[in-house]
Amino acid sequence: MRLQITHETRYTYEQPARSIMQILRLTPRNHDGQHVVRWRIEPGAEGKLTSGSDHFGNIVHVFSADESVQDLAIVAVGEVETSDVAGIVRQAVERVPDGCYLRSTISTEADEAIRAFAEKQRDGAGRTLPTLHNLMEAVHGAIRFDRDPTSTSTTAAEAFALGLGVCQDLSHVFIAAARHLGIPARYVSGYVLPPEGVVMQQAGHAWAEGLVPDLGWVGFDPTHLTCPTPSHVRVAIGLDSSEAAPIRGSRRGGGGETMAVRLTVEPAPGGQYQRQE
């Protein structure tokens, strides 16, 4: 499937903000099942944009604005060709030893409740893949999708106690539980093709990956109760959402800020159906 993506993040500050610096993890990479046809980052202000990669292998752009601005839009736009690989991630850049993905972080720490919950998902025969499938189903059932009660800093334990949350929270709970069971797990930020009829999305998507012996990293999307399909575009990974966050920024002054995301993910026109006129 060929997907066309336009992802605009617009910051508005109360007053002009100085020394804006942003770390952008907004660029997908190639691996089996995902080929980036074209991709561009367009900051909506004068400044310097440099690119490199971080310790996870994510492509990172650093944007530094030259002048004070009160309004800043960052646009990522491009096209990605995907195919079905049953959620198995092969040929991706791997820089971090697998054992590191067992580490818990503030937002993925398993509390008593998550640990007990995780234990119940163990496969009877001790196999990893079925355990992760059980876990995905259980997380999907335990947390109802609700945008209101949680924020970007909500921890897995808090979301689990609430029983409510967004894709970030479901993924955090999945990761916390998997790590408790001794399965390396990580956070993925990316995009997903919305259901028919939905054009504009207000946020990117997130899911998790678990490491399965002999198979490698396998994606699990507890929000949609599926392993990643050709509708998923994988952008960045990390131990939790803060490390895979599309944008992390700093500035001097500016007062309060509001952020608005406008995201469209749609099948590229013509791509599959080109024919001679």
């Binding site: 030893p97 054992g99 067992l102």
Partner: peptide, 16 residues
């Protein structure tokens, strides 16, 4: 043991 290093948040992956 490598798990002692890798799972320790004081081991900063950024520094590898």
């Amino acid at each position: 043991p490598s798990d002692l290093i890798f799972q320790n948040p004081q081991y900063r992956l950024e520094m590898k």
